[in-house]
Amino acid sequence: MTALDRGIVALDSEECKGCGLCIEACPPKVLSLRRLLNRYGYRPAVYAGSGCTGCGICFFVCPEPGAITVLRRGGGACQNN
């Protein structure tokens, strides 16, 4: 097992509408659209499971208030980029 990632991104697949803005914006490119549709008929964004830097950019570009939660190792200051 490699060293722990700096961040974790938690995506709520039932709130996501699959617009794809987070996937476009994610610097390490660790997000993608799931093949399986959610309850509302959208393909929600999912996290690859590793590689998140905890930058929080996906959180800011996401139009849904609570679809994305970002965690960072050790908490850290809310610095972006």
Binding site: L4, F60, L71
Partner: peptide, 10 residues
């Protein structure tokens, strides 16, 4: 998650 803290949430 141990060692991680939420930095951005709803």
């Amino acid at each position: 998650v141990p060692e991680y803290a939420v930095v951005h949430e709803k």
